[in-house]
Amino acid sequence: MTNLGRYILFIGKLFTNPESFRTYFRLIIDECIYIGINSIVLVAIVSVFMGAVSTVQTAYNLVSPFIPDSIIGLVVRDLTILELAPTITAIIFAGKVGSSIAGNLGTMRITEQIDALEVMGINSVSYLVLPKIVATLIMYPFLVILAGALAIGGGYLAASLAGVLGTPDYLMGLKMNFNEFSVTFALIKSIVFGFLVASIAAYMGYYTKGGALEVGQSSTRAVTVSCIAILLSDFVLAQLLLVR
């Protein structure tokens, strides 16, 4: 409970004594490049293989003559949009970006750079952390959209190259009984997950104490706590928005 209260106070400090808009704009652009653009390749590779494996395994398990092959495309589509694209990508994102945020802020803490900002009268939480969170909220939904499109494309490649089902059946399954709210739900999850990863990682790094060893430990804790928060919030959002 102590850490939870400290985390809430940490979030509150983001909006006290802010800097100028021009300063934030420059920092946010830099963070968007670092957080979003530099993550595209990893997200793309994982997403394509995620979709391909989902298609092959679904086709392997649906062997009943009473189930049409087009159902495979439907299962892969819904599985990708509702869970694989936002949630699995968030865990990968926490491992890459979350650990990096915690490590960078932890290094700044132990080298007294954060203390120097405080001495100059700058709100270090707002100056260092707010641009990272805003950039994550901007870029992570785009990464989720990219992951979903590439996963479905990877499923199409698996269907055509591996021969597990015909591509017309796969495309028919993608169009079958589509619920538009699934995309909205995935985007809501992406915003929540992006905020959790960026804020938790920043919190762990900002309050690092000790030396280089503790910076590594902070990065590890940031990834661990972020993954737990992602899975917990995934369940809560599903209960609130999907269960009727």
Rank of each mutant, 00 (worst) to 15 (best):
F15H: 06
I92Q: 11
E214S: 13
T87G: 03
T208E: 06
L240I: 15
I114Q: 04
V43T: 15
I188Y: 09
K13R: 14
V63Y: 14
T87P: 01
G51N: 14
Q113N: 10
A198D: 02
A162V: 06
G154K: 11
G36K: 02
F93P: 04
K132A: 05
R77L: 11
G173V: 02
I72G: 01
P18N: 08
V236H: 01
T16D: 11
G5C: 00
V125S: 12
V41I: 14
S218M: 02
I81C: 06
I33V: 10
S54N: 10
K132P: 00
R244F: 03
I35C: 12
I122S: 04
I110V: 14
L105P: 07
I11T: 14
L27Q: 15
M172V: 12
F185P: 00
S160M: 09
Y60M: 08
V75P: 02
T184C: 04
M120P: 02
F66P: 00
G205S: 11
P168Y: 15
I188K: 02
L242T: 11
A147F: 01
A198L: 03
N17A: 12
I33F: 08
I37R: 12
L27M: 14
L240P: 03
S99I: 11
K96S: 05
L42S: 13
G166N: 13
A85H: 10
G163C: 00
L42Q: 10
F195E: 12
I228G: 08
V192A: 08
S226R: 01
S39C: 09
I138G: 04
V125T: 15
A222H: 00
L187G: 05
I37A: 13
G210L: 09
A201W: 04
V76E: 15
S99K: 02
V223G: 06
L196Y: 12
S233I: 15
Y203A: 07
S218L: 07
V144C: 12
I200N: 03
I37W: 14
V56T: 10
I145W: 06
V183W: 13
L237Q: 03
G163S: 00
K96P: 00
G51Y: 12
L105D: 04
A52H: 04
S64V: 01
N179W: 09
S47C: 12
G210P: 03
M108C: 04
V134W: 08
V53G: 05
F178V: 06
L213Q: 04
R22M: 07
G121P: 06
G51C: 11
G166E: 08
S64P: 00
A90K: 02
